[in-house]
Design a protein around this nucleic acid. Sequence first.
DNA 1: TGCCAGGCCCTCTTTAGGGCCTT
Length: 208
Amino acid sequence: MITRPANSVIVLDFETTGLSPNQGDRAIEIGAVKLQNGMVVDTFQALMNPGFKISRFIEDYTGISNELLIDAASCETVMDRFADFIQGSNLVAHNASFDKRFLDAELTLINREYTGEFACSMLIARRLYQQAPNHTLGSLVDFNKIENDGVFHRALADSEMTAKLWLTILEDIHTRYFLANPTFKLLQQISKKSKSNVHAFLQNGSHR
DNA sequence: TGCCAGGCCCTCTTTAGGGCCTT
């Protein structure tokens, strides 16, 4: 267990009907964990009914069936609750540009906003774990020998895995570069460095 | 019937192309 203080963030993951809200895709499940001082202090999980039948591909990919969604609350109802949950927190997701698009689209539909900033565990992992076979969430969990129950492509399970990956990233930064409490801003900066100079950036110390 | 996105990032680059990620 990691006991060293870590950034307080909410790690989130959407399951959706497809890849693009601009093409009419909607969220069907949101999962999130709130991390404080390296510990999970709260979770959020809810299925949501997008108002139309989801494809067989998405049923197979996520294990979420149309039958399961019939009795689920609407996207509007769930996302209103989720907007309350994330207020005041910075946000993390694996391939955050994807989840941010859906978060922005769903919240726009209900005239809600959020104040936090996003960081992307995938962009950071591409720089820190350059020797990993690839940078999918599942591969990074395997690569870092992160404990898991084998459930993937469900929102809460994926957000929990991403949260463990996030804590592993914080731990590795501490171990490699003696940075005990890397700030959220520093993690955002890492994701914008080139692969070749991220090591020098973290060794430099000017960001301490 | 067949196809559909978007951002990041590398390189055989920058007047571009294509792979990686997410569902």
